[in-house]
Amino acid sequence: MNADNRRQDIADYVIQHGEARIDELVTAFGVSRMTIHRHVDELARQGVLRKLHGAVSAQPSGVYESLFRFRETHAAAAKRALARAALAEIEPGQVVLLDDSTTANALGPLLPQVAPLTVVTNSLSLAEQLVDKDELKLILLGGEYHPTYNAFIGHICENALQKIRVNLLICSASAIDKTATLIQDPQVVRVKQAMAAAASRSVLLIDSSKFGKVALHLFADLTDFDLVLSDDGLPDEVAGSLKAAGVNLKIVPVQ
């Protein structure tokens, strides 16, 4: 196993368990304490994990929360509910653009229900789900592959988006502060903004845990989206204030 793969496995292990002792990692991965410390130091430097005395924590940071494997397991029931609600916004025959969010990724298994469909995405995970589905034409945006997001981002991806037009964008964001949608990574912001510019209509899927949070970069205002879907964990007073601010908000029950 090469160093990158072992670091990813260590990060996955700590994410799954929330916290792990150094000795526990030595046993789990069958390597020396020096090797574990070297990998942990690098993961801490990247902001993925946090070092404690004799242990490693998966306490979230901006980078940690960006990890696809963390996002995939966070608020999973709410994301499935939002994906089901988003499916109703798609019409057969449309060209639909899906971002690299794990909420949009949850739409993957549902899309054959509204085929025929053309799906454009920068998400490798979503592409892998759809590559062999009947009546689904897949267009995968190019760019630099970024393992943190399991997606393609960067200049090439942005340029590709400038050359297409789609019926519908379905996307998400990292955090919501009042009516501002926020994302930690500026490269991801640029790609999502290019996606929004390419779409005739846009739908934001945002689970309730992201409200009242902050990330570094502004993506868009909630009023910029034709529809915002969130789950019923969102407090009534927050939902009311958003609607009063002009946000077209629909609350989705989580079953």
Rank of each mutant, 00 (worst) to 15 (best):
L110Q: 03
P253G: 09
K243H: 09
L205Y: 05
S241H: 15
P186A: 01
P186R: 01
P116C: 12
V214T: 07
L136F: 03
R69C: 11
R71C: 14
I10D: 06
I139M: 14
V48E: 03
K137R: 15
D100G: 06
G93T: 04
A55F: 00
T179W: 06
D12C: 09
Q59V: 11
L49Y: 02
A173L: 06
S241R: 15
I176F: 11
K163M: 07
Q193T: 09
R7Q: 13
T73R: 14
K137C: 10
C171S: 13
K178W: 11
Q59E: 12
G47L: 05
L216K: 07
A239P: 10
A76P: 05
A215P: 12
H17I: 05
R38P: 01
I156A: 13
V131D: 06
Q193A: 14
Q59G: 12
A81G: 04
L97A: 09
T148G: 08
D221E: 13
L204F: 02
Y145D: 03
E42H: 12
K133E: 15
L204D: 01
T73F: 09
P92I: 08
I153W: 04
P147D: 10
A75T: 00
G246T: 06
G142A: 14
S230P: 03
S61F: 00
E237F: 02
V188N: 10
M195S: 01
P60H: 07
A106F: 13
S57D: 09
D12K: 13
S61Q: 06
A78C: 07
V247N: 00
G47V: 04
I90A: 01
D207M: 06
I36A: 03
Q113M: 10
V188K: 12
R84I: 01
E19Q: 13
E65I: 12
N105C: 12
L182H: 05
L107N: 00
A76F: 09
A151F: 11
L169S: 05
D185I: 09
N159T: 10
Q255Y: 15
A3E: 14
R69V: 15
R80Q: 15
Q16G: 14
A127P: 01
S61W: 06
D232L: 02
G143H: 10
P186Y: 00
S57R: 09
D224C: 07
D207H: 09
V191H: 07
S61K: 03
I176E: 07
V247I: 05
V120K: 04
A44E: 12
G30P: 05
R33F: 11
K51M: 02
A196M: 15
K210G: 01
Y13M: 11
L98S: 11
A244N: 13
A20I: 02
D23K: 13
D132N: 14
S208R: 04
R50S: 10
K178G: 08
L234F: 02
N5F: 06
N105K: 14
Q113H: 10
V14C: 02
E237D: 11
I156S: 11
T27D: 15
D23Y: 13
R38F: 00
F225N: 00
L82M: 03
V119L: 15
A85W: 08
M1R: 06
K79N: 10
I156V: 15
V228T: 08
N2G: 12
V191C: 11
N248S: 11
N122L: 06
D232P: 08
D23H: 14
V247S: 00
